[in-house]
Design a binder for these strands. Structure first.
Lengths: 379, 379
DNA sequence: TTGTATGCGTTATCAA
DNA sequence: TTGATAACGCATACAA
């Protein structure tokens, strides 16, 4: 590859000063039309391309790139989210660098460091399952950071001491509004909203966009109960994951279980992949030990449906996260649907607002979920 | 955000020269341990982060970033591909910037220009449907470019004159090997392989990774014919898309139709989304005008299954591209499966090889497809 | 082993 | 309106 021409080359070819070319390239209006056209000619003839990397090292300038750290771009949940972020950023002139952490804390840390070294303007991050590496403390002062899907710091006080604090939260009305709930630290106490169980109500470190995981799971579980289910399987990924803990908490709340107790009315199975989920369900199907399934993520839903299909039988089922196959099988699979696109858009706007200079205290936005009933919740 | 500290700051704090810090940061071994530890201390105390953007403007250095231009990251086909590219690049220390062109030629051009301005080290691109903007001519001399999923220049000589050249290609043996076919211009003529119909056998402009679209479509169509289908619907996206033209060509070849003729034994329907595809199928279902469906992409497959499910009936169906729901419905949906992960990996390796200095003439790699039969091909 | 001086491609300052 | 010059943060000759 030949060394690409620089502004200096263009300036020489056009017989003008370097600065004039710079002005032209940056779209300045106050340029002699004669010079401008000579510059334009030189640019096309030499094949000059503006070097944003070089421009970005000047103080006050940047490459207009945002980093996005998710767990796996191949998962439709994340790819739809990434696409939504990309779209919003693109409309504002930003590019997106997406990386997959594979739920590995070390890799996560490595990727964040790399993106910072690359001097991205902002960071949208789905925090790793065990935030012991404290990457956020380093990153947050350097550039705007937004947490997506999960909060940055573990909200639970400590993994060991689990004293569920106050009196059991009064069941919130299962409102069906579509507006996001805003939970700012500077509490405007008028908007009624489901409180995250076990969540300390203190200020988040960074802007945070979450779904109402607990509320969605609770609604789904109640629906299964309403149709007569008594021994519901909670089928999901590791409870080390924030979303899983929240969904499990909502599940237990619907069952009327003490969040801390270990009542075996709530059987919990862990599966990282759809195949594992299918195995679990297949193994349980004939036993009578369960009479319904709450699938806590899209892979679990897929696995459960797969097991049902192969066995030629089924149990009442509701999944968390909508998925493509949900409408293609009979009965249709009922789900707790998140507005993934809105989550991405909200996160992107949060970074953009900070980049535009706004500096309000960090806010947590909790997006409502929607219970979509398609028939699979019935016996 | 405070101005981040530079190497100069670190050098001052550690009481050493700038260059020594540079060495330390770049992992040089020949440093006095005493100085090294002083530098290390200064780095952590100041919170210094290496600035790769600044480093990358030095000659011979780069930011180690690759650009990927696809049509829509939200489509599982592309997101799985992107993930595969990301993984391979990541193993080699590169980051990936993925952008979605939305199949819009102007937007495509804009994005490519932006990525070049950003000084990415290489470009993996799924070319736009009508490559009239000639972006490749500008880009290719500047940095390694790899075409993925579609060739860079239109292979068809011209949209108007369609003289199918030589005698009808002898039907290639439907080999089931898994190794990719290599079609280099410096023809090693031993490996038997399906020739792209209508494809000029001249040298590609850039390394190109394709799937055997025509061969896969032909095999699928033959399978439908074998089970008695006579009026097969070709349901896909616009024939302006290379992959659609190829799949349609394979479809017609299986039907024994002259590639140029307009025999209405081959009914073709265009649908950009799954919903549109479902509408088309629903409208045709009762009419008896078709007795089988070849769904030419994953959205068409989804739409067809949706239509079948809603109507409570079905027709023999084979789709192009595997999709999640294919195994979850009964009968399972038969598909022509591409090895998407391999396509991404191959493309990534192609860029990396060029970046490593290799300069063989550009090669076209055609990946075999695999006909996966699950039952939906039966009447 | 360490330091000094210079340049990478660009933009900002300030004078012409 | 235009141009000479000095940064920006970093890395490489070359000297010490």
């Amino acid at each position: 590859m030949p060394k690409p021409p620089t502004m200096k080359d263009v300036a020489a070819a056009a017989g003008v000063a370097l600065k004039t070319v710079s002005r032209h390239v940056n779209g300045a209006t106050n340029i002699d039309p004669a010079l401008a056209s000579r510059i334009a000619t030189a640019i096309t003839e030499l094949g000059y391309r503006h070097n944003l990397a070089a421009a970005s090292i000047r103080p006050g300038r940047s490459a207009k790139v945002i980093g996005l750290v998710i767990s796996d771009l191949a998962n439709p949940y994340w790819s739809v989210l990434a696409r939504s972020v990309e779209r919003t950023l693109s409309e504002n002139g930003y590019l997106l660098m997406t990386v997959s952490s594979e739920e590995d804390a070390d890799r996560h840390r490595l990727l964040v460091d790399r993106l910072i070294a690359q001097r991205v303007d902002g960071l949208i991050v789905s925090p790793p399952r065990r935030d012991t590496t404290g990457w956020a403390a380093d990153a947050a002062p350097l550039l705007p950071v937004v947490a997506i899907d999960r909060p940055l710091a573990p909200l639970l006080p400590s993994p060991t001491d689990a004293h569920p604090a106050a009196a059991p939260t009064p069941t919130p009305p299962a409102a069906e509004a579509s507006a996001p709930l805003l939970t700012s630290p500077g509490a405007d106490a008028d908007a009624p909203h489901p409180t995250q169980p076990g969540a300390a109500a203190d200020a988040p470190l960074v802007d945070t966009i979450l779904a109402d995981n607990a509320g969605g799971a609770e609604a789904a579980t109640r629906e299964l109960l309403r149709h007569g289910a008594r021994r519901i399987l909670f089928l999901g990924d590791s409870l080390e994951l924030y979303t899983m803990r929240e969904r499990n908490a909502g599940f237990r709340r619907a069952l009327g279980l003490d969040p801390a107790s270990d009542d075996d009315r709530a059987s919990v199975a862990t599966a990282h992949t759809a195949a594992e989920a299918a195995e679990v369900v297949t193994a349980l199907l004939g036993t009578g030990r369960i009479d319904a399934v709450f699938a806590a993520n899209n892979r679990a839903s897929t696995g459960a449906v797969d097991a049902f299909t192969r066995a030629g039988t089924r149990l009442p089922l509701i999944g968390f996260d909508d998925f493509e196959a949900a409408t293609l099988v009979r009965p249709g699979i009922s789900v707790v649907a998140q507005d993934v696109a809105q989550m991405g858009e909200t996160a992107a706007h949060a970074v953009l607002a900070r980049l535009a200079g706004e500096t309000p205290p960090p806010t947590t936005t909790t997006l409502r979920t929607r219970l979509v009933l398609r028939g699979s919740e019935l016996p």
